[in-house]
């Protein structure tokens, strides 16, 4: 099985490079999703409850970022942040781009979810004497989060897909690792198929976890 020249042999030989690549992909995706969601919640809240001026600024931010392809965000972030002023690493610059991208999606989803709640919910909560912070925490947020869950899962898979773009700025995630391995052993098809399988499995797992989560938090009817 492990004869030189077979795929399995090469796989064994490159195992560390591959694992590091997968690890980097997972790390990038997780960080992007986590930080992007935190920022995104803030964005969403400002879009719904902010004062006119803050809403305007955040709206411009969201529209600008969402109208720009992720690839452009990654490249711009890389060239801007590694060469001028701040001097981040490629990894950090790429991550910044992904976090910004993620925050706009999460923010928009949250805004949509909150604004889709019927006004009667706020009124009924007010009618029993709840203050705004109380009614947001107990009545609005639980419903909005349930609403926004499917879209958030979609955003999460988009972040995994966007992590592939960091290979272009030389971040050693799975795409770049595959490219380097293949440059050595020329087993292009096999290793790229493997990479594809790995990406598919990661996203598919996220999708399944999401469906399970959706079922668990669903309201009985």
């Amino acid at each position: 099985m492990f004869e030189q020249g077979t795929f399995l042999y090469e796989l064994w030989v490159s195992r560390w490079a591959l694992l590091q690549g997968v690890g980097a992909t997972v790390l990038i995706s997780l960080l992007a999703i986590l930080l992007g969601t935190i920022l995104g919640v803030f964005v969403g809240l400002v879009l719904v409850y902010g004062r006119w001026a803050s809403r305007f600024v955040v709206r411009m931010y969201v529209d600008f970022v969402r109208g720009t392809p992720v690839f452009v965000l990654v490249l711009a972030s890389y060239y801007l942040l590694t060469q001028i002023g701040i001097q981040l690493t490629a990894f950090q610059a790429g991550l910044v781009a992904l976090v910004v991208f993620c925050s706009t999606h999460v923010g928009e989803n949250l805004r949509g979810a909150l604004q889709s709640l019927p006004r009667g919910q706020t009124e009924a909560a007010k009618a029993i004497g709840l203050t705004f912070p109380q009614l947001f925490v107990y009545v609005l947020a639980p419903q909005a989060l349930r609403q926004a869950l499917p879209a958030w899962i979609n955003t999460a898979t988009e972040m995994v897909k966007a992590s592939t773009l960091l290979s272009v700025i030389s971040v050693a995630e799975l795409m770049l690792a595959t490219k380097q391995i293949v440059a050595r052993n020329f087993m292009t098809l096999e290793f790229y198929l493997l990479a594809g399988l790995i990406y598919f499995l990661i996203n598919y797992a996220i999708e399944r976890a999401a469906k399970a989560a959706e079922r668990r938090v669903a309201l009985p009817s």
Partner: peptide
């Protein structure tokens, strides 16, 4: 399959 694969890939 195709919805779960990165377009760049």
């Amino acid at each position: 399959v195709f919805r779960n694969l990165p377009p760049y890939f």
